[in-house]
Design a protein around this nucleic acid. Structure first.
Lengths: 147, 147
DNA sequence: GTTATATTGGGGCATATGCCTGTATAAAAG
DNA sequence: CTTTTATACAGGCATATGCCCCAATATAAC
């Protein structure tokens, strides 16, 4: 893209959404050859982080700051491709625990290299200190109880 | 929501997306009674800002930092509800200029009151100075040529 | 134990987002 | 003037997002 013009909009949400569109395009482009979208990459990453004690869908949704039904929808393509699996819980018949498969692990490892390039490019644009500070502010925002 | 837990994820994009989910829920909830989603409200606002000289779809997409096809999709529900209109350009047969209708203006004016409450609540959560600084950083990010 | 309440997740609906491809129109090349 | 190239937009495809309502299961109240 060239010579980006945009109104100076007062809406906090609108500006946030503009930024996420722009940044998502960057990350999705970098991840393209891996066959994963940014959301899918993040989802697999979260599962990887909880390999030893798989989360229920509710827990996973909370970690991802995502609606339960959204998580369900996002899991479907990954289930179809056997990158993740659902295991019925031993004690609670309602819950299913979400795990990353070996295929998923492999896919993630491959995508991680491309993701690092996206991270570097993002940092190059706004500067690493600013990037880290911004991420910290957004993390706080994303996990604020008060909202 | 209560007691939000979330991993400390290194991906700038993932955290940005988490934040946008969370904030969008707040704004959409506030705007609910207006019958407009946040994106629709922003879209109408942008049209309103250019009332006197309606933009082409390409121009509008650029202002919104949004893909052209995404804009087309987002316009469809608004066209259906007669909140916006497309006028063929006088000189260029390919372009269509997007305008907000009287109905759209009325809808926007009503939604604006609710939007202000969302803004206030958002500011209350993270503090007004932080909110303004964050918006400024995100605006820069959204409109950076380098990306 | 039976009933009431709460939790877990699924399915349907609508919008949001962007890619790729095609079509129509305009502008440039010759 | 015809051909080529560039631009503007539409449509199909897939994922992303969240709401609502519902069924199944579990827990609490009695």
């Amino acid at each position: 893209m060239v010579k980006q013009i945009s109104s100076h909009v007062p809406c906090y949400c609108a500006v946030l959404r503009k930024a996420v569109r722009r940044v998502s395009v960057l990350y999705d482009a970098k991840l393209k050859d891996s066959g994963l979208k940014t959301t899918q990459f993040s989802l697999l990453g979260e599962l990887r982080r909880h390999r030893t004690a798989p989360l229920t869908m509710n827990e996973l949704a909370e970690y991802l700051v995502m609606d339960r039904s959204t998580l369900g929808h996002n899991l479907r393509p990954l289930l179809r491709r056997r990158l993740v699996a659902l295991k019925p819980d031993a004690v609670d018949g309602r819950t299913r625990r979400v795990t990353i498969t070996a295929r998923g692990e492999a896919k993630f490892a491959n995508a991680e290299k491309l993701w690092e390039k996206a991270q570097k490019e993002y940092e190059a644009v706004i500067g690493k200190p600013a990037a880290v500070a911004l991420r910290s502010a957004l993390q706080k925002l994303a996990t604020s109880d008060a909202l």
